[in-house]
Amino acid sequence: MSDFLILIPAFNEAGSIRWVIEEAKRVLNNPPIFVVDDCSQDATVAEARLGGARVLSLPHHLGLGGCLQAGYRLAYELGYQYVVRMDGDGQMDPASVNTILAELKSSGHQMVIGSRYLAKSSPYSSALRHAGIVFFRMVLRPILGKPVHDPTSGFVGVNREALEVFSRSFPLEYPEIEALVVLRRGAFHFTEVPCTMRPRRSGTSTITALKSIYYILHVLLGVLVNILKFDRKLWRR
């Protein structure tokens, strides 16, 4: 049995999911791939099964955080050591999964983030998104005690320790940034490795211009709430 699995949270990704799964299987020597379907209204489930993935189907729409947590819970119950999350839109190059896994194993850190800003080629993201990322880098720097270049990256590998924490406590709706703070609360560590991102194959970003203000406020409040839950002793460690 493989010691890692690839987790793909999917919501209406029928246009790209099968291609993403087939590419990952080809590049990574047929790893177990789990698609968590957040109650899609299109053919996502059928396409994922055709691609050869195992599908965890949620009975109703939970949002990205709840969807991911379901996958983390299942991975934890099934005893996997490492979980790498990818998106179903084809932006992530599966070859980078090996980089993330190698870093997880060699560093012993609980989380490894595939960062588009550490790679040399220019990332595909809008000016607005970039401004948001710069803002969150500033906010997160003192909280995490080290810089994070791509806090909103969805290309994230975690080990079993982080899996255990996430299966109990995981932020809902916009999880990436808050998840970093949740891990820090447990005095866990993360590193970043460079990853190249490609243009998405189908679908649109979950974060539109109109929603971005709400997104920023929501995440800021979530970060604040998580700081309030910090255990002082763990924090100093």
Binding site: V36, R54, V55, L56, S57, L58, P59, H60, L62, G66, Q69, A70, R73, L74, E77
Partner: peptide, 10 residues
């Protein structure tokens, strides 16, 4: 509950 149902069903 939804997560549990999905996992059990799987």
């Amino acid at each position: 509950l939804a997560q549990k149902v999905a996992i059990l069903e799987y």
